[in-house]
Structure formats: structure tokens, C-alpha cells
Design a protein around this nucleic acid. Sequence first.
DNA 1: GTCCTAGTATGACAGCTGTCATAGAATCCG
DNA 2: CGGATTCTATGACAGCTGTCATACTAGGAC
Lengths: 198, 198
Amino acid sequence: MAGSERGPRERMVFSAAQLIRRDGVAATGMREVAAHARAPRGSLQYYFPGGKEQLVNEAVGWAGRYAADRVGRFLAGLAEPAPSGLFAAMVGQWTDEFQTQGFGSGCPVAAATVDCADSAESTRAAAGAAFACWNAPLARALAELGVPEQRTGSLATLMISALEGAILIARAERDIRALTTVARELGPLLDGCVTERA
Amino acid sequence: MAGSERGPRERMVFSAAQLIRRDGVAATGMREVAAHARAPRGSLQYYFPGGKEQLVNEAVGWAGRYAADRVGRFLAGLAEPAPSGLFAAMVGQWTDEFQTQGFGSGCPVAAATVDCADSAESTRAAAGAAFACWNAPLARALAELGVPEQRTGSLATLMISALEGAILIARAERDIRALTTVARELGPLLDGCVTERA
DNA sequence: GTCCTAGTATGACAGCTGTCATAGAATCCG
DNA sequence: CGGATTCTATGACAGCTGTCATACTAGGAC
């Protein structure tokens, strides 16, 4: 999660995502984003003529694509292929972050949803798209792991739901307990859905 | 969810919870809370000398107690006692709200967590307490439904996680699909944990 | 050289935020 | 009646927000 070589525009989107997932959308200022990205403040209105809403939407979209990409990498890196292992890898990314970086930051898509679902329609739509963008490759991965097609979408939604909720609880409690719990309880269920060998 | 007969202080806490769950903590102003509660603005500093943080914390605490109370009512009103039915009732409360009131508002505890976990330690603690306050009666209810003691806490956490995550997705997509999905997929798993008859 | 464009730099704007100081009403006690 | 307590009213404060207008610099095209 390091970003420094890219252009100022990309750095600002990346920084926006980072600040949003820490403080929420409303508490994240544009001047702050520029400073965090070490980008000139004058470039904000140049790259983002749509204002803060555009910047936030792009940050949310970036986060969705990032999550989607990771699914593929987790699937490829699985020791033994099983849905429970994939879910454990997704959860593990968060337990690792919380244990090494602290509980300061959560999911930027969740933050955008909570802060903008009723106040900025385009941002709400961006968050919806981000979740969909995350769900699709996850469902494909489940299919590859032997889950019958008609359930892959539902199970992917369940996995994302449980993960997002556990992230919330973990941050509130400053304890990864909720994350390890959902991984442990959901894993067997997911594996129980496998009917074919890939 | 109507509050009008109580005193101004309670009305302000209640209004704060409503506004927070709609717009998030940062976007909710104190003047707005007073206006929404039809309470005098001058009373804010009188009832909440701790400022906005105190008001937010009390709203979060109220929400946690409200959720905990509902678990008992759901359990009592269950047609046939099973964990899946309890979970369906919890989910149903949200599908009902979304379908009748729209997707404008989510969970206030989630909003407080997202907005304050890294910026207001006391609010983060209040959110953690709210989740714990919700988890306890839910775990007890599962025990009463025949789930062995050592798993009740874990399953309660899984239920709350999945519900909170599905609320997020539903708001982002403006579709209750995620909620019905988690209820359908998680129900059988929950029932499968029942070993004793109550 | 000039011209054009991409990107940057500032400063100002109105609007809102939470907080505080201070004064005022209302209500009950004795 | 006086007096105390509880609650309300109001105006001001510094600080921050997103946005805009405007002027500037760099770098290449020709």
C-alpha cells in the first residue's frame, strides 16, 4: 500500500482513500488531501473540476478495484484451495493491518457509504459499484473452488458482509476478536458448499 | 421509533442518533440536533457540558441499548424458536425500514465507529460498548434456543457482523438484496448449531 | 523569437462548525 | 415577599470548510 512514484493526480486519489478510511468523508478536507499527497493545492481544482465529490468518488472506485484485485492474488496464493482459505486470507489482511498499524483505519467504501449514502447520490452510486466490483471476482473465485454457480454470488455477498461488519466491530473494540471469530465460524460453512472438484 | 413525550434532554439524544445514522457524526451539527429535537439551542451546553463528544457518546449508548432490547422482543415473538428465525427477525427490521422509509439511514453505531474510531477515543469506546451490549443478550438468546454455551458468543458476533455489513451494502446499492441474502445463507448454519432442545 | 497548453500558486469568499460568556426567564422553596 | 435553582436565549468568537477568480510559471511547437 505504498504510493509515491505515480503522478500527483493518482497520489491525491490514493491519499483521499487513506484519509477517508481513517476519518470519514466529512472530516477529510481537500487541503489535507493535497498536503498528505505532497501535491500542490492549486492542482486540486485542475484535476478534479467536479470538486470534492469527484475526488471522493474516484477514491472509492480505486478502493473497489483494489479489493477486487486482491481477491485474485489471494486465490492464486492459496496453500490448499478451499473457500475457507480464501476467506481466511481476506480476513488475515485486516488482522495483519490492525496488529501492525493499529486500528486507526477501516474500509474507505464503508466510510463513504455511511457518510454519503443520503447526501451525495453519485458517491452512494460509487460505493455500490465498488461493492459490486468486489463481489464479482470473489464469486468467480468461489466457482473456481468448486461452489455451484447459483450460490457463488450469494456466498460472496455473505463473505463481504461478514468481513465489513467484523472490521467495524474490531475497530470499535480495538480487538481483532470479531475478525478471527467470523473467519472461524464461517469457514466450515463455506467449505460445506463445495460440490465439485476443480 | 417515535420520541416526543420525553424531556428535551432525551429528545436531543434521540435526535442525535437519528441524524448521525443518516449523515454521519461529522456532518451532524449541534444546532441541527437541537432544531430536530425541537429543543432550545441554549440547553445544549447545559445538558451536555462535555460538548458534542458527550452528546454523540450518549446517542451511541442509546442505540446499543435499543438494539439489545429488541433482541429480547424478537426472541419472545418468534413463531417457532430457532436461531434462523431470530436472525431473520433482526434482518427483517432493516428490510422493513428500507422498504418503507428508504435507504437514507443506517446504523448509528457503525457511523460513530467509522467517523470517530481514530479521532475521539471516548466515542470509539462507546461504540465498542454498544456492540458488546448488543452481543450479550443475543448470545443469551442463542443459548435459550439450544446453542451450546461455548459457541453462543461467537455466533452472536457473526450475526451482528453479517447484519452490519449487509446494511452497508444495502444502503450503497439501494437494494435489500444483501440483507435477504445473508439471512438466507446464514440461517441454516445457525440452526445447524442447535444441539439441545430448550 | 511567439504562441499555446499543462500545471501551479495565492488569496479571497461566504458559510458553517463547536464553544464560550453572559444575560435572561421560569419555577419552586421557605 | 426574597432567593435559589433550573433552564433558556443570544451573540460573539476563532477556525475551518469547499469553491472560485485570478495570475503565474514551465515546457514544448513551430
